[in-house]
Amino acid sequence: MENRKIMSLGRASLVISLPRNWVISNRLKRGDFLSVDVQRDGSLVVFPGMRRDHELRKAVMYVEPDDDSDSISRMISTYFLNGYSRLEIHSRRIFSTEQITAIRRASSLLYMSVMESEAEKVTMETLIDESKASLTNSIQRMHMICLSMCKDTLKSLRERDLSLARAVIALDEDVDQFSLLMLRLLRNAALDPSLASQLGL
C-alpha cells in the first residue's frame, strides 16, 4: 500500500499522482484516459483506459458434426462461467437434432435466451444484470430448494412414495441453475473489483 498526498490544482480541483510502476506497466502516458469507480466501502478503483459500463462479453464457439450433447453442454457452461454474455454457436455443417436439443437445454439451465436460431448458427444471450444480482438471495433460494428436496426425500422413504421421489429428482436442475449462476458471479467478481463491490464482497 502506498500513501499519496492530495494536492490542489487551480481553485477547485484536487489531484493525486499515480504510482510510477503502475503507469509504466499499463503503458500510460500524458493525455491518456483513466476510469475511476467508487466502491461501497468508500475506496476508489482506477482502471487504465476508458471503461464502458456493463460491456457485453461475446464469444464464438464451433461445434463439430460428431460433438455429442454432453460436450456441447460443457463448452457452453465453460463460456458462461468465464463471464461471456453473448455466445454465437456455429456448426461446421448443420446442427443435428441432438445438438440443437443440447443447446436449448443448456440455454435454459444457464438463464440464457436464444436470440437467433438457424440450421448452422445459434446465438444465445444472458438476460441477467449481474450488478443487480444478490449472492445472499441466491444462497437462500438454493437452500430452500435443497431443504425441500431433503424433506421430500425422507418423506418418500418413510411413505414409500415413488412419485414424490421422482418429483425430487426433477428439482435437481433448479439447484444446478443457481449454483452455476453463483459460480459465474463469484468468478467475475474475482476479476472485477466493481462487480465485487456491487455484490457486497
Partner: peptide, 16 residues
C-alpha cells in the same frame, strides 16, 4: 435411517 436423515437435514438447515 429416516430419523438419522431428519437429524442431518435439521443440522444442515441450522447451519445455513
Amino acid at each position: 435411517l429416516v430419523s438419522t436423515g431428519v437429524e442431518a437435514v435439521e443440522a444442515y438447515n441450522r447451519a445455513v
